[in-house]
């Protein structure tokens, strides 16, 4: 039974349809990447699966269970954690407070020490900066923090939205390495990336999303050599963006 299965998911902003009947699944312990150009609907897809946006049409199953009536908090409680685009850390709070808020849904489950320790083992840099305000961290450190915060929620499935955006190649390497360690710890991972070739190196399988539809899928090996993928990525160039701070949340004062 897949850890996460999405069937016929559609989404529109007003009359603009951005997702049109998307189907994909991720098996337990897999890393699956959703690649696609700008505007393909990748971020919307993750936000609907995580219920940051409302699920209006389609089905999302977690280990075979329908989640149609779940709120965003319910999804977090069921172990589906989103690491959003642009990190979205709590800039005015310390690193450690950010991590503790990641444990919000599990606040009655005893002490946080062991959870913090697990994050700090994976990202020793965060331990060094635990008292620092999250807003003062570098882009890469904020990405570590965003992943660490999701780890505090005891994820079974982690959705990551463009974790490599705006990071140096070395930092991308470290983040990807952390993701593969997380997988070894039993976390199922869905990775949305524009940096398709970095994502395909890490992932077991991938889907190619274009203008709201899945237009291709297969093993990472096959996708990396797929003519459509090569056309999409080599034809329209990879847009890496340059926003290293990237913490400005949408619609915040």
């Amino acid at each position: 039974m897949p850890a996460l299965e999405v069937r016929g998911l559609s989404y529109a902003y007003g009359s603009m349809k951005v997702l049109d009947g998307v189907d994909f699944h991720v098996d337990e312990g897999e890393i699956v990447t959703l690649i696609g150009p700008n505007g393909a609907g990748k971020t919307t897809l993750l936000n609907v699966v995580a219920r940051s946006l409302r699920l209006r049409e389609g089905t999302v199953l977690l280990r075979g269970e329908d989640t149609g009536r779940c709120s965003q908090a319910d999804m977090v409680r069921r172990g589906l954690l989103l690491v959003p685009e642009g990190r979205q850390v709590f800039g005015a709070l310390s690193v450690e407070d950010n991590l503790l808020l990641g444990r919000y849904v599990r606040r009655r489950e005893g002490r946080a020490g062991a959870d913090l320790d697990r994050v700090y083992r994976l990202f020793p840099r965060l331990r060094e900066r635990s008292r620092q305000l999250a807003g003062t961290l570098s882009g890469g450190e904020q990405q570590m923090l965003a992943i660490g915060r999701a780890m505090m929620g005891a994820p079974r499935v982690m959705l990551l939205d463009e974790p490599s955006l705006g990071l140096s190649p070395q930092m991308v390497e470290r983040i990807m390495d952390a993701l593969s360690q997380l997988r070894d710890q039993g976390v199922t991972i869905v990775l949305v990336e524009q940096n398709a070739f970095a994502a395909l190196r890490l992932a077991d399988r991938g889907y190619l999303l274009q203008t709201g539809r899945i237009v291709g899928s297969g093993s990472s090996e096959n996708l990396a050599h797929d003519p459509t993928v090569r056309h999409v990525y080599l034809g329209s160039a990879t847009d890496e963006g340059g926003d290293d701070a990237g913490s400005a949340p949408p619609g915040e004062s």
């Binding site: 977090v76 979205q88 709070l93 808020l101």
Partner: peptide, 12 residues
């Protein structure tokens, strides 16, 4: 601080 992120960590 960040309403969107609050939702992401499961705050209602």
């Amino acid at each position: 601080i960040n309403r969107y992120a609050a939702g992401v960590v499961g705050i209602n």
